Simulated scan of single mutants.
Amino acid sequence: MMHLAEIIDWISRLAIAAYFLWATVFNAQSWNFQLSEFKRVGIERGASLLIALGLAMLAGGSVLLLIPSTALIGAWVLIVFVLSADAIFHRYWTYSDPQEQVIHKIFLFEHVALVGGLLAIISARL
């Protein structure tokens, strides 16, 4: 029988993995939009490779997060992905349009919360 801490750990890993698996599907289905976003931030060369790498990190990190013995690795993979994506796309202070600033500020701080959850999963395994 699982203890309460194990149940909470499972639920937290499942919730975070579900979000990132959804993001994998969403980003794969919006490949052309992703290419345009890379172009918008000045990255055209290698954008397809970066998108593919990002999708692999999202999917792989999520699966690793769901497996108790590899959850630590999965959490780190997802943290690296989130921080990289935020550094490239969600620098809200660089947008001149106030609505764009708000949207990217929301994304950035939601991602800070996700990283916090991933760090909690990591800390439970150290």
Rank of each mutant, 00 (worst) to 15 (best):
S96Y: 10
R13A: 05
A120Y: 12
I67T: 11
S12A: 15
I122P: 01
L108E: 03
I7W: 11
M2L: 11
A52E: 04
D97F: 00
F38W: 10
S84V: 12
T24N: 04
I51G: 06
R40K: 15
Y19A: 14
V112W: 06
E100W: 00
Q34R: 01
P98E: 06
P98Q: 02
G61D: 03
L119M: 13
S96K: 14
L58A: 01
A56P: 00
R125N: 14
W10P: 00
L55E: 07
I122H: 07
I106R: 09
L108S: 07
Y19R: 05
H104T: 10
L66P: 04
I79G: 03
L126Q: 10
S84N: 15
Y19D: 06
A59P: 02
A85R: 03
H104A: 05
L50I: 08
R125A: 15
D86Y: 08
E6N: 08
N32V: 10
S48K: 14
W93C: 08
A23F: 02
E110K: 15
S30K: 12
S62G: 12
H111S: 07
I106C: 07
R45K: 14
L72H: 14
L119S: 02
V115M: 05
V63I: 14
A23Q: 08
L35I: 11
E44L: 13
I16Y: 05
D86H: 05
L108N: 06
I11Q: 11
H90Y: 06
L72T: 11
E6R: 04
Q101D: 07
A124W: 04
K105Q: 12
L78G: 01
D97Q: 01
N27M: 10
S84D: 08
V102Q: 13
T24M: 03
V77C: 07
L21M: 09
M1C: 08
L58N: 03
H111M: 07
W76M: 12
G54P: 06
L66M: 07
